[in-house]
C-alpha cells in the first residue's frame, strides 16, 4: 500500500520518478503537494482501494505523510 502511494505521488502528481520520497516526508507543510495534488491523490486512493473519502475527513493529520495516509485508510476502512 505504502509503495503504491509513494509511486503514485512521485510519478503522477510530481512527474518526477527519480525523486527521493519516504513515508515520513511531510507532504503538506513542505509544499510538496498542493490542493490540486491532494484532489488527485484522493481520487487515486478512492479508486485504488475502493473507498470513499468525504471532504470532512480530508484533514492535515490524515494526509500529512504517507504513513498517516496508510494509517487513516486502515482505521477508517478496516478490511
Amino acid at each position: 500500500m505504502k509503495n503504491e502511494i509513494l509511486t503514485y505521488i512521485k510519478e503522477t502528481i510530481l512527474s518526477d520518478s527519480s525523486l527521493e520520497l519516504t513515508p515520513e516526508d511531510d507532504l503538506l507543510n513542505s509544499g510538496l503537494i498542493d490542493s490540486i495534488g491532494i484532489v488527485k491523490l484522493v481520487a487515486f486512493l478512492e479508486k485504488e482501494f475502493n473507498v470513499s473519502i468525504p471532504p470532512e475527513e480530508m484533514l492535515i493529520e490524515n494526509f500529512v505523510d504517507v504513513n498517516a495516509i496508510v494509517e487513516f485508510l486502515k482505521l477508517s476502512f478496516p478490511a
Binding site: L28, D34, S35, I38, P55, E56, M58, L59, I60, F63
Partner: peptide, 10 residues
C-alpha cells in the same frame, strides 16, 4: 474543527 482542512489557503 469543522472548518479546518488539508490546505489553509483553500
Amino acid at each position: 474543527d469543522g472548518f479546518r482542512s488539508l490546505m489553509k489557503p483553500v
